[in-house]
């Protein structure tokens, strides 16, 4: 049943997926904590025209993608450092522009043809040594940065207004996070592509978030879940001949939906029965319906 994993190219894909899970498991939690999900989607999409350009001009795809992604990260970081919160409208703008430029470059300038699909949705079964080396570097950097800068990222995410008083409002630490996410997005491109990068980077972290309440278990759980989803997707795509990136995305999305459903079912159950909520499944609604939350309602604190 698992003879898929006898093939060297599948084994290589598996190594790539496991390495990316390490990076995604740690960075994914920071993406969720800092509200950067849309940014990560944007930075991956921004890499698309870079890939097309590199493909058309014949230089390293990774370099092309990372160049553009880095530019994007620096722009957003610059705006954030100047105190213009809400990267979202900028991200949306860049997202659309990047896809449009990428498509025009691909269809009208370089006539990239079939490559475009690969660039948009990845080609996990065709990863090469360079892809794996990049994944190793990204995973190592993600773990190292989480270990050293994690406390700062957490404190700023918890209470941005207090950050300066606490002496942690260093734009550098936040910029490192943005650049690392850009790097991870680029590393993920080869596996699941520009449009599905969030399937690895964000969805597993968002899934595990619903069942954990501290950073460390959340991060470990996310690494395990991303690895499991990647492995399952890889296997299933081999068996069904479906594209691996899309298969992983469908599995990740499906598990997210299941966990969300289970959680709201548990909420309904405990609310109708009036019993204490089981650990790890305490729902948000409990807060939102408290008299306290209601009296706060409407007063936008930001």
């Amino acid at each position: 049943m698992f003879e898929a994993f006898d093939y060297p190219f599948v084994q290589r894909a598996l190594v790539e997926v496991l390495l990316l899970s390490l990076a995604a498991g740690t960075l994914g939690t920071w993406i969720v904590v800092r509200g950067l999900a849309f940014y990560s989607h944007g930075v991956a999409a921004a890499a698309f025209p870079g890939l097309v350009l590199a493909d058309g001009l014949g230089f390293s795809a990774t370099l092309g993608a990372f160049g553009v992604a880095l530019l994007f990260a620096l722009t957003v970081g610059q705006l954030a450092a100047r105190g213009r919160g809400g990267h979202d409208s900028l991200t949306a703008l860049v997202l659309v522009a990047a896809l449009a430029i990428g498509v025009v470059l691909a269809s009208d300038v370089f006539h990239s043809g079939a490559n475009v699909e690969t660039l948009l949705f990845g080609s996990l079964l065709a990863v090469d040594d360079a892809d794996i080396r990049l994944a190793i570097v990204v995973a190592a950097l993600a773990l190292l940065a989480t270990w050293t800068l994690g406390q700062r990222w957490l404190a700023v995410g918890f209470d941005p207004s207090a950050a300066r008083g606490l002496g942690v409002r260093s734009p550098a630490a936040d910029l490192v996070l943005l650049v690392l996410i850009a790097l991870a997005a680029v590393a993920t491109l080869s596996a699941v592509g520009a449009l599905l990068a969030t399937a690895l980077l964000v969805v597993p972290a968002a899934t595990v978030r619903m069942a954990t309440r501290r950073m460390l278990p959340w991060q470990l759980g996310t690494i395990v879940l991303a690895a499991a989803e990647g492995t399952a997707g890889l296997w299933l795509s081999f068996e069904t001949n479906a594209p691996p990136g899309a298969t992983i995305a469908v599995i990740a999305g499906g598990i997210f939906a299941l966990v969300a459903l289970a959680r709201s079912a548990a909420t309904m159950y405990t609310r109708t029965r009036g019993v204490a909520q089981p650990l790890g499944l305490r729902p948000r609604v409990a807060f939102e319906n408290s008299p306290e939350a209601r009296s706060r309602g409407g007063e936008g604190a930001r």
């Binding site: 309440r213 807060f287 939102e288």
Partner: peptide, 8 residues
């Protein structure tokens, strides 16, 4: 509200 949901 966002702080209430923070994993700390």
């Amino acid at each position: 509200r966002s702080r209430l949901d923070f994993p700390v």
